[in-house]
Design a protein around this nucleic acid. Structure first.
Lengths: 345, 345
DNA sequence: TTGAAAGCGCTAACAC
DNA sequence: GTGTTAGCGCTTTCAA
């Protein structure tokens, strides 16, 4: 590949001058400038980012460490991080931990197993001398994976960091749940079955609080027997609907669209007409939701907002437009967007 | 960050020796070895890939240039490329052209607009001195985007390259369509409506050939009036079903699950019971398919096989285990996997 | 078994 | 305006 030196020789100038015109640094006479540009064009010279990176001690590369890019939430966040980064002339490298593919939903039990996967990847991005890292979690929780003296800025995406130095960008579960439950309440539903994930899951907890707040704001008493804790699956949605049916709800709020799918399955098996005899609301606005019959009312995760915000926070920090944060961790919450379809009557 | 030189000083040896023990090159006495390893441990030394890349003229980075990572086909392919690459100690960097986000389905009309997006990205991966590139297309067609004298190996994924130097890895549309149509025929369906994309689309053409071959093999005459060309959308599926209904088909083969969704919409609106009065088959096995009511029989895209094959071909070429190909372009085809659900009766 | 020296391609400091 | 020099952190001769 052709180098700056060859261009210099070809034009009878020094490498410095070539470097200067490429980067628009020092002023150069019009004619040398044109000569150099012409030579670059002719030879097909491409600057070598590797050499540049070594010299400048700055690669303009951002690493995304994703817990699992196969999670439906990951690609939109990644896409939006890339978009923002490219606009600001950063490149993105992605590492995939494949945590769910490896261990399903149970892996976060073992700190040791977790670190056996994360740590080498962290070493690796350290070695790649990236300018910053965005950790993209698969679901909300407190994650401690960054060394206290990380040599570059980091941002936690879709989960909470344990350090004041690392800001977190998450969805506003409580507000979003409150909003969709309010929709149900406004339609006259007072007995709303809540179908959640595991009780210790942060999304479940926050959405339940949102649910309770909506009830409270509408003056409807909270009935704990209308709450079902299960798994994050379609099957669990069925079980939840079946279990709560004893309590005669007029609507279900399943906190994921997949679980709502299970609610549909149960209701269909009982020939109960959804959107007429009973209402159902989901959460996530996965692609499946629009294809349910009837289409599912749900709330869309603010995935691109999260990605954009994370990229922005990171690049601000990289470029030093950020004073050191010593107080509380910085947490940015983004609300979901209600998507009204016909599953609520 | 600590460097090899610091380790060397600390241990009273030369940088060469440190480099040797790190990379297991020349033999080193047991004690210097241990001393060095200890120093590395203590100081938290991380090799600098940037410097290494400059010196070795080899970055061990693979670039994926994706036409749109928001296409549902992209993430699984990327995931599998990453998995294979990491196993072979390559890192991957992803560029996203966002072609669909920018221009919907119409962008491939304009070579000029297309190149205004691809070319800078290609320049960029050239500058990054990656060891190889995988181009990940959004849909099958012949793509000419690589310069004839690309300085590194390349592989075309999910589309066809125009060069004998660049192998292509694609799905076997014909075989997969033939298989699913045969399933329909074996269930006794002889009048099968074919709902395709645009007539000039390669997937449409190949799947239609597969459809025709299945008919032929079952001795059923081909009726061109049972073929509908439309768009790659849910709405188009509805239109196709409506149009073809005049010809009294007993089954529909929609060549995407989204279009099958539109077929469902039409049939539901007419109160025609799917899986009983009429059968429907899709294509892709998107996540939506399992949530249709009744669940959709379809065929799963071999996305991880494609990714793995592409990565393998690329790394083989990078490591020079590949003689120069001068004859026909190398095309690898992977068949889909039938997923039987209850939409066929 | 170990070390000295050179150089990958670039930019920054400084001199002219 | 332009050139000289040094050096980013590493590996690779080649010599000891």
């Amino acid at each position: 590949m052709v180098t700056i030196k060859e261009i210099a020789d070809r034009c009878g100038v020094s490498p410095t001058t070539v470097s200067n015109v490429i980067n628009g640094k020092a002023k150069t006479s019009r004619e040398t400038q044109e000569k150099i540009l012409a030579a670059i064009e002719e030879t097909g010279y491409k600057p070598n980012y590797v050499a540049k990176g070594l010299r400048m001690q700055r690669t303009r590369i951002i690493a995304i460490i994703a817990e699992d890019i196969a999670q439906f939430t990951s690609p939109p966040v990644i896409e939006s991080i890339m978009e923002y980064s490219e606009e600001h002339d950063y490149r993105v490298t992605v590492r995939n931990l494949r945590l769910y593919a490896r261990w399903g939903d149970t892996w976060y039990d073992s700190e040791e197993a977790y670190h056996s996967i994360v740590d080498p990847v962290l070493q690796d991005v350290l070695s790649a001398r990236v300018d910053g890292v965005i950790y993209l979690a698969g679901h909300a929780r407190i994650i401690r994976c960054f060394d206290e003296m990380l040599p570059f800025p980091a941002v936690m995406c879709y989960a909470f960091s344990d350090s004041a130095k690392v800001p977190s960008v998450v969805i506003d579960d409580e507000k979003s749940a409150c909003e969709i439950v309010s929709l149900l309440l406004n339609k006259g539903h007072e007995r709303i079955g809540f179908i959640g994930g595991k009780q210790e899951n942060i999304h479940t907890q926050q959405r339940l609080i949102g649910y309770q707040r909506a009830l409270f704001e509408h003056g409807v008493p909270f009935d704990p027997d209308l709450v079902y804790y299960g798994e994050w699956t379609r099957e669990s949605g069925w079980l939840g609907a079946e279990t709560l049916s004893a309590r005669k709800p007029s609507a279900f709020f399943a906190i994921s669209d997949k679980m709502a799918g299970g609610v549909y399955d149960y209701l269909n098996s009982r020939k109960i007409r959804i959107g007429r005899e009973i209402s159902v609301a989901g959460f996530d606005d996965e692609s499946i939701a629009a294809y349910f019959n009837p289409p599912l009312t749900t709330t869309a995760l603010p995935l691109s907002e999260i990605g954009q915000c994370a990229a922005e926070l990171l690049i601000d920090r990289i470029e030093g437009e950020q004073e050191e944060n010593t107080g509380e961790p910085d947490v940015r919450r983004f609300p979901c967007h209600l998507v009204k379809r016909s599953s609520i009557g």
